[in-house]
Design a protein around this nucleic acid. Structure first.
Lengths: 128, 128
DNA sequence: CGGTATCCCCTCAGATACTG
DNA sequence: CAGTATCTGAGGGGATACCG
């Protein structure tokens, strides 16, 4: 079922579309992207605010993450030419459309957390 | 909005639940997991069938992936003690509940693929 | 304030060879 | 057939220092 969605056709799998989906999944699954998107989901933030909001992220990774999101059109970067400089990041309309599916996955993770952890305990116990 | 879902409460962010969600997202986002789940979504497969179905996966990565999925209770592993050995992998009920949210994300990726690629072209052009 | 540049570590994933 | 063991290279990510 997912295989069909990923490949879009029957005979020859659409490797290209499939890899595109995987790249998006990889982006979503990386260490910081979802946290940044989640924070920006509550409204625009300046660079420093964003760094404080996403606990533990380094300047380097924050910059890399927002740059990648900006390149993909999910986040906008607005420079206010003042002293000191003021740079605001916000979700674009496209970025906001990502909120729902990501939230669905987060909800799944929370709802089934107990099941997963119980399964892990059983597995680790059995394979001791 | 997602921040609230990830953290579940207001005053003190639930770092624990948040990290759990991130671990699930990381698992989903890794290179092979979704492909394996997608293939098993069509029905049980043997080890070798699975490897042929997931183009390019090495024995090592297939084993690591299915072991992790088994540990989390998303995939079942059934050994038929025959000669030659026959091991079947299948989605569990829990694993099947993951299909919908993952499909939602895959659908988003496909629907908005054009937007993302256009944005990338503009970004790369502007920052040349 | 909002970044870049550099170094370095350490995990992840591929290739290869071997086993019950 | 269904794995395990070992080696190796690439790159993700932290720490630090510096710049407009």
């Amino acid at each position: 079922m997912i295989a069909e969605a990923l490949e879009l056709d029957g005979a020859v799998p659409d490797q290209d579309a499939c890899r595109h989906v995987l790249r998006v999944l990889g982006r979503i699954g990386d260490k910081w992207t979802v946290l940044v998107i989640a924070r920006l989901g509550d409204g625009p933030l300046r660079y420093g605010e964003l760094q404080r909001a996403v606990t533990g992220i380094s300047q380097r990774m924050l910059t890399l993450t927002v740059r990648a999101l900006e390149r993909d059109g999910l986040v906008s970067r607005t420079v206010h030419p003042s002293i000191p400089p003021r740079v605001e990041y916000a979700l674009t309309d496209l970025g906001r459309t990502l909120l729902d599916p990501v939230l669905a996955l987060a909800t799944w993770a929370i709802e089934h957390r107990g099941d997963v952890e119980e399964s892990r305990r059983r597995y680790d116990g059995a394979h001791a």
